[in-house]
């Protein structure tokens, strides 16, 4: 077992543990903090795939910005384990069943995908995740989707300002 494999299994275990704890935690603030652990583990996986830019942007945007806003909202709403509504056992059962079905659908979709047949993950030598290559690809091959996505973000920002301005 090389270092890469040890790191891979460690990060995988950490991500799964974090994800399970997000669901199991009764306290919403704990859930948010476990979700941050999950983001860290996934960023570790990105680094193993040599996608350093993706790894750090994942941390800056999700763990650093979006989760802070989540924490803000949860802290201000003062949600506690006691006030959390308890769902009935049937609701939980059907939730697990539909979630499991969706997961098996995704797995079968990925396994049978033609693009992924006979491909292995490029550990340490893949270079499309480096900032230089990623920037070139985004601004040459995928320039139209990229620009459309940025206009979408701009409209969302304008919308937020308009809602905030309404007295």
């Amino acid at each position: 077992m090389g270092t890469t494999q040890i790191l891979f299994w460690f990060l995988t275990a950490l991500a799964l543990l974090g994800a399970i704890m997000v669901l199991v935690s009764k306290n919403p603030v704990h859930s948010v903090l476990w979700l941050i652990v999950v983001f860290f583990a996934i960023s570790g996986h990105y680094i193993l795939l040599n996608a350093q830019f993706l790894a750090i942007v994942n941390l800056i945007v999700y763990a650093g910005a979006i989760m802070v806003l989540f924490l803000f909202v949860i802290m201000l709403m003062n949600l506690n384990a006691e006030t959390e509504p308890q769902k009935s056992i049937w609701m939980k059962f059907f939730g697990v069943a539909t979630g499991g079905l969706l997961l098996s659908f995704f797995i079968s979709f990925i396994v049978s995908s033609i693009d992924l047949k006979n491909k292995t993950a490029q550990l340490k030598e893949g270079d499309v995740g480096l900032i230089k290559n990623l920037g070139k690809v985004l601004f040459s091959d995928y320039v139209i989707p990229f620009e459309i996505a940025s206009i979408l973000f701009l409209s969302a920002m304008v919308g937020a300002v308009v809602i905030g301005k309404k007295d």
Partner: peptide
């Protein structure tokens, strides 16, 4: 010597909030 050094700093700075928020809450 990572090739995302400046972004790394930026990422860590954005985590500085958690110490304050967790402690305060």
């Amino acid at each position: 010597d990572v090739n995302i050094g400046m972004l790394y700093i930026f990422g860590v700075v954005s985590f500085g909030v958690y110490g304050i928020m967790i402690g305060g809450w």
